[in-house]
Design a protein around this nucleic acid. Structure first.
Lengths: 119, 119
DNA sequence: GGTATAATAAACCAGATGGTTGTCGATAGA
DNA sequence: TCTATCGACAACCATCTGGTTTATTATACC
């Protein structure tokens, strides 16, 4: 169990590793969007944006519903939950480091008082 | 502000998108490790593992302290916090979908009762 | 000094990624 | 029906990724 063989997480983290794809996710968090709507704010051609949506689909972050000639996309957030749960298992680490920083700041504060009297 | 220009998040999510690198993070969550210790459980050559550690360093997820001939690596969790906070902004979406599933299950349950009497 | 060990560096490779342009099919609307 | 629009698809390209092998540097130990 040393290595984390989890292609689901691979795909989700990879999907989130590109600013355009994160932008798409945020757009979809507001509500359903067609491909052209998703593509228009991105500084790239339509086919490029379309590829990004496919990457998000592969990560199961986006569902596509074809309605006539337009493809309506919506967010599927559960893979985000998986990603968050993975990172959350290290919560105590960043909390610990902030606690350490707090302690340091406390100590600096405590030393500042006597030093200002000494000086 | 349409596109998410955040190279920090790019690097963090990209760093987490590979099973070997997630395995390294988990190893470091237990405590400090040298490069050879990090590489040994991975099914790849040492230089390959070393490259993965560099990717993690670029994402500021790993700090390296050189001690004689060995490089001691430790976890810097704060970028994980950033990644988690980004995903967390969509929490209500997956909670909503689970709420919807709950509702669905409730409805199915409610319909099951009369149907089992009908059958 | 001589040898084993920790790690880097460089060269190389196959395949993935991220983008483009151009062509095509299907649907909506005049 | 004709035209505009939404989108897929394919080809192409440069660059990045993830891995290898080989050689090299620097430290530790006998």
């Amino acid at each position: 169990m040393v290595v984390d063989r989890s292609p689901r997480l691979d795909r989700v983290f990879h999907a989130l590793a590109h600013p355009a794809r994160r932008a798409i996710v945020r757009q979809l968090s507001v509500g359903e969007r067609t491909l052209t709507e998703l593509a228009s704010p991105l500084k790239m051609t339509f086919p490029a944006a379309s590829k990004h949506v496919r990457v998000l689909e592969a990560a199961k972050l986006v569902r596509r519903r074809i309605a006539g000639r337009e493809h309506r996309c919506s967010l599927r957030a559960s893979p985000l939950k998986d990603a968050m749960q993975w990172t959350e298992q290290f919560r105590r680490h960043w909390e610990a480091s902030f606690a350490a920083l707090d302690t340091l700041l406390e100590e600096m504060k405590a030393q500042e008082q006597p030093r200002s009297r000494r000086d």
